[in-house]
Design a protein around this nucleic acid. Sequence first.
DNA 1: GCTGCTAGCCTAGGGCTCCTAGGCTGGAGG
DNA 2: CCTCCAGCCTAGGAGCCCTAGGCTAGCAGC
Lengths: 189, 189
Amino acid sequence: MVREKVTVERLTRAAAEMADEVGFDNVTVSALARAFGVKDASLYSHLGNVHELRVRVAVLALTELADRVADALAGRAGKDALVAFADAYRDYAKAHPGRYTALRVDLTPGTPATAAARRHSDLTRAILRGYHLPEPAATDAIRLLHSTFHGYVTLEQSGGFGHHPRDADTSWSRVLDVLDTALRHWPPD
Amino acid sequence: MVREKVTVERLTRAAAEMADEVGFDNVTVSALARAFGVKDASLYSHLGNVHELRVRVAVLALTELADRVADALAGRAGKDALVAFADAYRDYAKAHPGRYTALRVDLTPGTPATAAARRHSDLTRAILRGYHLPEPAATDAIRLLHSTFHGYVTLEQSGGFGHHPRDADTSWSRVLDVLDTALRHWPPD
DNA sequence: GCTGCTAGCCTAGGGCTCCTAGGCTGGAGG
DNA sequence: CCTCCAGCCTAGGAGCCCTAGGCTAGCAGC
């Protein structure tokens, strides 16, 4: 473990990595201090409290996820965009389970988290551009997409699909087919 | 607080109530012991460790939820069954946020949790009876439904829908309409 | 009724976590 | 050169999880 200069940014990144390795709930101020070769009390020069650390990891994750999704969406429309978004989302969650779990922390309004969350919501809305849904159907559709992606990834992560032989990847692409159809034939009113 | 005889069942129920009131993560052995007017060390005559307590609450919640859903499904088929299931699910999560959160604990196989989880999965499958989906489409459909319900409820619970004026109930019934359509026109193969 | 077992409480205490208070120091800026 | 302060330290309190070991009341068997 190379002993780096302690900064809030480095602490946040280290916490995110630790979360992916040992689980978000096992990231503690003490463990982080140990990783930096420093006493835990010392970290309070950089952090207000544990909650701030957790929120920082959540914002980091939200930002990274939005970046990936934005990349994936670039130049795509319609089902292409839907699948790219969904895959980027799911791949991120798989690659960074701890960071993904961090997204569940209470992001009380007013924090920089709100901005990151808005960006995320805007990106989800961008998927719909190819489907030409008017409001309020668009909002309902976004909620459906977000719920399904989040739910699928969460259940998969917690092993909810392991009891059945059907491959989770296959189900996933089937689910995306169905969502695409749903968006193309969204009921009026 | 009436001081009741301490039993595992009473501890579990009290923990579930406490979870709904102060959040699942704030249910501790110490707090539970205080509620029973007893020292925390005393609870270890009844419980092996905190994890056991959490799993017990999760199993309690899973069982209660399965009961509600089973009630809701009785005598219904098709979209009726779908909506009844979904509403029972969402209503339970709203009424018992702490218990619902408990369902996210790792239910390692082998525990009585497995049985409760299977019952839950069987009930979800019962919804599909009216839609006549063959395997493996049925499994994919169950995964879609479960993901969407779970995701929607989780996001709603964590305030994810609060930023937009569109009513969460309205979106919910729209989502159910769309899922019903999807199940009726599930793509072949 | 007496004896002995056990369920279920207790105190004591160790280890980890979060966090506060206050002290020391090395290096940057005046 | 001297001052200041960022950023480390030690000390310590409080809460939580859990173990070890002791006391007691009530029940079972004689």
